[in-house]
C-alpha cells in the first residue's frame, strides 16, 4: 500500500512527471516479467500419449502382417 508521504509526493508532480513515473514503473514491471518467463522450460517429452502409442503399435502390427 502506498504511504501517505509517497502519495502526497506523487500528487505534487505535474502531468509530464506523472507520465514519466508511470512509464518507469511499466518498464520495470515488464523487465521483471521477462525474468519470470525466462524461468519457464519447454517439455518436449510426450509423457501422457497413450493414444498415440496405441496407434503406433497398430501401425507396426499392420506392417508385420503385410510384410511378415
Amino acid at each position: 500500500m502506498l504511504s501517505d508521504v509517497l502519495r502526497h509526493e506523487l500528487e505534487k508532480l505535474n502531468r509530464v512527471e506523472k507520465l514519466q513515473v508511470v512509464q518507469m514503473l511499466v518498464t520495470q514491471l515488464a523487465r521483471e516479467e521477462e525474468l519470470l518467463t525466462a524461468g519457464e522450460y519447454e517439455v518436449w517429452s510426450p509423457y501422457e500419449s497413450a493414444g498415440a502409442a496405441a496407434i503406433l503399435m497398430q501401425m507396426l502390427e499392420e506392417d508385420r502382417q503385410t510384410n511378415g
Binding site: 517439455v43 510426450p46 501422457e48 500419449s49 493414444g51 498415440a52 502409442a53 496407434i55 503406433l56 501401425m59
Partner: peptide, 28 residues
C-alpha cells in the same frame, strides 16, 4: 511414451506428410 520424429528429419528421409497416418495426439 512414443518415439518423436521432428518434421525436417521426416522430410529429409523422404517421408510423405500427406500420406502419413493421422490421428496422433501428443502431450507437453
Amino acid at each position: 511414451d512414443v518415439n518423436v520424429l521432428p518434421y525436417p528429419i521426416g522430410i529429409g528421409l523422404g517421408g510423405n506428410w500427406e500420406q502419413a497416418r493421422t490421428g496422433l495426439t501428443l502431450s507437453g
